[in-house]
Design a protein around this nucleic acid. Structure first.
Length: 885
RNA sequence: GGGCGAAUAGCUCAGUGGGAGAGCACCUGCCUUACAAGCAGGGGGUCCGGCGUUCAAAUCGCCGUUCGCCCA
């Protein structure tokens, strides 16, 4: 074969071609590996709201690394892809779109609106898929799902009806977080709290039938319109006598009672608080305890209700200003202080939420949370890193009922129907008549379910549930879930309790948690800041492998990372390094046919095979514990630091030399190591590794004669192939070469100018160094090596590198600057003596000898001896030089 | 108010009980028949501060400082 690869890797020319090849061959399809253990991941379904961002790129790359690695290990891998309808988010997008034509959703009507939403979904679904293809993910596309497809929708109904029948779903009046802009209730965790400078308004409430007044403080004076009590602490001596009496609500001229409740903090403000059950969660709870009236002062549009006299219809902020002005005018305003407090905002549109009492559907959480707490405590589902367990448990243990109805149109419509006779019908199939009165005038609930309701079923609904499908049997529970820490409570927690309730099993054994991808300055990437980086742009410019490698190496489990152009370039350089190392091998293979490793291997071969064996072990072990960044780094170091910097350089002597047998042996090892390296690399950089692999010669007797790297075997670590002898010898050889390079660099010798060196070396080491002489000469730009025995006189006019086992001299008659060399050796002596002192002190400590593990003590002793020899050599040399000076 | 995380080279970050690391940046010398997106060499650290546990702490515990996040 003729190989003529360009010197610079061009990802754009190979990636699409290779992805299509993989798809054609159906490599990503699960099944067909009977008898193999399954390894399953369900994708965190991206929202069809828009396109993918860097966070998605990271999330999917991690999953793809795991899946490709397990596939190569021989597992029956299933990575199930899909997308999420993302209720409020998508609805908002479609509404924005309509607004450009001057239309509201009410103008077009529910049916037409949903058509638009489906169109939106189709468009973005296609784009998301394109992006995932570009990233190179190996999902089983034949099993792709959507949260609103037929099967998932059936699962949603099944779950709703079942929970309703078991009394775990109920409908009730409750204080919910209302977004006046999205015009819907949202769950507690969809509210973002933000500290904001605000004011604390102190208002006087005059006594009724008693002399005096009570001052209450509030951050939201406009809610006073709906006050139905003033509360004090029962033990508070200032107010004890007033409990049970009444005050007059200013502006409204309504009498309201003074009540006592433990909840009131007597040390805050005046120790008395106004109670607005309709507009504050704590007040609502207190109102329930005391049977207080609920007076709505603010309506669903964020405006004052019609019952509130002159304020009726005013926007809540305008009303606040007006009310404060009126209070002041009428003498009820005590004072206004500056104050900072947390204000709830809608996660989707950032509007300040308004707590409102309304009729909503809820999931009763306590019975569901218990088992979900247990499985995590028992370690049946594990969070990685472990610290996220605590956040999960804290949330689960303090959980409140989950408001699941949303007053929007895009989503799963609540399967409840109302009959004029008062009957409520909750059913899997649309009812045609009322079971109570036989009436046919049934109205379905207009609300839809919270998006997370369907996502909570994702691990089993996507596998066919409620049908007992083969896939469900085989692939559930899934093996791992890969997700960002920001959706542990939204999604992970809910999948766990839903799965335990309906499947009686955990949904996944391990949750690998990753962090956020931030911009180069560490800020969150966001549309409003305009600091987002489109993964596709990076792929177009540098290739998917580069993007993947950047994200993976920049990542430590559970930690945020910054996306920096420098790191992208570093990854790009690495892929080019791989490309060129492969070019070198391919250019020199000739008509080589792989037939396994040669029978006789030399020291260099044994050393690189030992290194490869070690990096195989390390990479595999790191992947096992989800340390993907470390695993990728291990491969990087091996490729660049061992294979390229040393083995390839050493191999040049053979390949550019004369001996045919040597050439063949060298080719075989280069081939073997390169091929194995590509396999280690493949999960991280699937495209470049596959592309090069496809260029490698193959033969039928080759042990890895698969048709694609993507389905070849993951390298196996073999302990019997470790070669400590070769390793040790090569370490010495490399140390000698580095020492010579270092000396040459001290005097600024350019590579082209070769120099003689002198070794003063024990006879035991002479065979090794004489055997390696040609390589030392080549790699250290040496022209001639003289071997001296230890008895021989040392060269005088020379720089010295004093290793603990031998001495290396660079003779430079007349060139050497004695003063400089003395200074240099003096610095080295100082460092050596410092280390020696530390080691000596350690060994002198009887506690250390007694309590430290024997191998550590042994190591320390060896170190001390080594340093001793080195110290003697340096000081000896210094004495000689000083004599000459 | 409660919880969690971060603090290590100029920058960005790995490292979690046994001799301080990487990438980038910087300095020096090099186009060396794979690669200048490269090669060789080098400088650079109070591992935030303090106390403790231990034979041994960047690593474990406690206290504090600064920053970030989550929850109430």
């Amino acid at each position: 074969m003729t190989v003529n690869l360009p010197p610079v890797y061009e990802p754009a020319e190979v990636e699409d071609k290779i992805y299509l090849y993989w798809l054609e061959k159906d490599y990503f399809k699960a099944g067909g590996r009977e008898g193999k253990k399954p390894f399953t991941i369900v994708i965190p379904p991206p929202n069809v709201t828009g396109t993918l961002h860097m966070g998605h790129a990271l999330n999917n790359t991690i999953q793809d690394v795991l899946i490709r690695w397990r596939r190569m290990q021989g597992y029956d891998t299933l990575w199930l892809p899909g997308t999420d309808h993302a209720g409020i988010a998508t609805q908002n997008k479609v509404e924005e779109h309509l607004a450009r034509e001057g239309l509201s959703r009410y103008d077009v009507g529910r049916e037409k609106f949903l058509e638009k939403a489906w169109e939106w979904k189709e468009e973005y679904h296609t784009r998301i898929l394109q992006q995932l293809y570009k990233l190179g993910v190996s999902c089983d596309w034949s099993r792709e799902r959507f949260t609103m497809d037929e099967g998932c929708s059936r699962a949603v109904r099944e779950v709703f009806v079942s929970l309703y029948e078991k009394g775990l779903i109920y409908r009730g009046d409750y204080l919910v977080n209302w977004c006046p802009r999205c015009h819907t209730a949202i769950s507690d965790i969809e509210v973002e709290h933000e500290e904001k400078p605000s004011t604390l308004t102190h208002i006087r409430y005059p006594g009724v039938g008693w002399k005096g007044q009570i001052v209450v403080a509030t951050t939201r004076p406009e809610t006073m319109l709906g006050d139905t009590a003033v509360a004090v602490h029962p033990e508070d001596p200032r107010y004890r006598a007033l409990v049970g009496k009444k005050v007059m609500l200013p502006l409204m001229n309504r009498e309201i009672p003074i009540i006592a409740d433990e909840y009131v903090d007597p040390s805050f403000g005046s120790g008395a608080v106004k109670i607005t059950p309709a507009h504050d969660p704590n007040d609502f709870a207190m109102g329930q305890r005391h049977g207080l009236e609920v007076v709505k002062a603010i309506g669903e549009k964020g405006t004052i209700t019609p019952e509130m006299g002159k304020y009726a219809g005013m926007d809540r902020y305008a009303a606040r200003r007006q009310i404060v002005a009126d209070l002041e005018e009428q003498g009820f305003l005590d004072k206004i202080d500056d104050y900072t407090h947390a204000v709830g905002h809608c996660q989707r549109c950032k509007t300040e939420i308004e707590p409102l009492v309304s009729l909503q559907w809820f999931v009763k959480m306590k019975p569901l949370a218990g088992p979900a707490i247990n499985v995590v405590k028992e370690g049946k589902t594990r969070f990685i890193p472990e610290r996220f367990t605590r956040a999960y448990l804290h949330w689960m243990e303090n959980i409140r009922d989950w408001c699941i109805s949303r007053q929007i149109w895009w989503g799963h419509r609540i399967p409840a129907w109302y009959c004029p006779c008062g009957e409520v019908i909750v059913a899997k199939e649309d009812p045609s008549e009322c079971p109570a009165c036989g009436g046919t005038d049934l109205q379905q609930d207009t609300d839809v379910l919270d998006t997370w309701f369907s996502s909570a079923l994702w691990p089993f609904s996507t596998l066919g549930w409620p049908e007992q499908t083969d896939d469900l049997q085989r692939y559930f529970p899934t093996s791992a879930l890969v997700t960002g820490y920001d959706i542990i409570s939204f999604w992970v927690a809910r999948m766990i309790f839903m799965s335990l309730f309906f499947m009686d099993e955990i949904p996944f054994a391990e949750v690998s948690v990753h962090g956020l991808v931030r911009d180069a300055e560490g800020r969150k990437m966001s549309k409003s800041l305009g600091n987002g980086i489109d993964p596709l742009e990076i792929i177009d410019q540098y290739g998917a492998d580069t993007l993947r490698f950047t994200l993976i190496t920049g990542q430590a489990p559970g930690n945020d990372q910054r996306f920096r152009p420098e790191s992208v370039e570093a990854s790009r350089n690495f892929s080019n390094k791989i490309w060129n190392a492969s070019r070198y091998v391919l250019m020199n293979l000739g008509d080589f046919k792989p037939e396994g490793l040669p029978k006789t291997l030399n020291r260099h071969d044994r050393w690189i095979l030992d290194s490869f064996n070690r990096v195989t072990r390390e990479t595999t072990a790191l992947l096992e514990v989800y340390e993907l960044g470390e695993a990728a780094r291990a491969v990087y170091e091996f490729v660049w630091g061992d294979f390229c910097d040393w083995y390839i350089e050493l191999s040049k002597a053979y390949l550019y030399g004369e001996g045919e047998a040597e050439k063949e042996r060298s080719r075989a090892v280069l081939y073997h190591v390169l091929e194995g390296t590509l396999r280690l690399l493949h999960p991280f950089m699937p495209f470049i590794s596959e592309e090069i692999w496809q260029h490698l010669p193959r033969s039928n007797s080759s042990p890895h004669a698969k048709e694609a790297l993507c389905v070849s075997r993951w390298p196996q670590f073999r302990s019997q192939e470790l070669d400590p002898e070769a390793r040790e010898e090569m370490e010495l050889v490399r140390a000698v070469i580095r020492a010579i390079r270092n000396l040459r660099s001290e005097v600024g010798l350019p590579p082209g100018q070769r120099s003689p060196v002198v070794f003063r070396v024990p006879t035991s080491l002479q065979p090794l160094l004489r055997a390696e002489q040609p390589f030392i000469e080549k790699l250290a730009w040496v022209e001639e090596i003289t071997f001296l025995s230890e008895e021989a006189e040392k060269p005088a006019q020379a720089l010295a590198a004093l290793l603990d086992e031998l001495e290396v001299y660079l003779p430079l008659a007349g060139v050497i600057d004695l003063e400089q060399e003395i200074a240099r050796l003096g610095r080295e002596l100082k460092n050596t003596e410092k280390d020696l002192a530390r080691a000596t002190a350690k060994i002198a400590n009887p506690n250390f000898i007694q309590k430290a593990p024997p191998e550590i003590v042994e190591k320390e002793k060896n170190k001390k001896e080594e340093l001793n020899r080195k110290q003697e050599k340096i000081s000896g040399r210094l004495a000689e030089l000083k004599k000459m000076a």
